[in-house]
Amino acid sequence: MAMNGTITTWFKDKGFGFIKDENGDNRYFHVIKVANPDLIKKDAAVTFEPTTNNKGLSAYAVKVVPL
């Protein structure tokens, strides 16, 4: 089920960042999981599918909501 969130941290040079989800949890995401990576920036609103990996909470099918 899709969730909403906000990008809180973005490491462009490393290709990953973190999203604060609607429950207040931080989720890892990688640029290859983003549909529109050219719009990635700190504080951008996103929708995504929540999941977990071996390191904890993460996100896939991430879409940055255009302003």
Rank of each mutant, 00 (worst) to 15 (best):
T6M: 09
F48G: 00
T47M: 09
T47H: 07
W10Q: 01
I40H: 02
V62R: 00
I7R: 00
K42L: 12
F16N: 02
D38K: 11
A45E: 09
K12F: 07
L57G: 04
W10T: 01
L67N: 14
H30M: 06
D38R: 10
N54V: 11
I40G: 01
V34K: 03
I32L: 15
G24Q: 05
G56K: 09
F18D: 00
Y28F: 14
A44N: 04
Y28D: 01
T51H: 14
Y28H: 07
K12Y: 08
N26P: 05
V65R: 09
L67R: 10
N54E: 13
A59L: 03
A2D: 08
E49T: 15
G56C: 08
M3N: 04
D43I: 03
N26A: 09
G17V: 02
P66V: 14
L67Y: 14
A45P: 10
F11M: 05
A59M: 04
N23D: 06
I19D: 01
F29D: 01
H30L: 08
I40Q: 00
L67T: 13
F18Y: 10
Y28R: 03
N36E: 06
T9W: 13
N36I: 04
F48H: 00
A45K: 14
K63I: 13
A35K: 14
E22A: 09
P37C: 05
Y28G: 02
D25I: 06
L67A: 14
D25P: 02
I40M: 06
M1G: 14
G15S: 06
A35P: 04
I7P: 00
K63T: 14
L67I: 12
G5R: 00
F48P: 00
K33W: 15
N53A: 08
A35Y: 14
I32G: 15
D38A: 12
N23E: 06
R27C: 02
Y28A: 04
G17C: 02
D43S: 10
K33M: 15
A45W: 12
T9G: 10
T51K: 12
V34M: 05
A35M: 15
M3G: 03
V31Y: 10
I7H: 00
F48Q: 01
A35N: 10
V34E: 03
G24C: 07
T9P: 01
K20A: 07
Y28V: 05
I32E: 15
Y60Q: 15
N4P: 05
I7C: 02
T52W: 13
V46D: 02
I40E: 00
M3I: 08
V65S: 08
I32T: 15
W10I: 04
G5M: 01
F11I: 08
N26W: 13
H30K: 06
P50K: 04
V62S: 00
F16V: 04
I32W: 13
F18T: 06
D43F: 12
K42A: 08
T8Q: 09
A59N: 01
A2T: 15
N54T: 12
T47L: 09
F29V: 04
K14A: 09
T8V: 11
I40N: 00
N4T: 13
I7K: 00
E22D: 08
T8C: 09
N36K: 04
W10A: 01
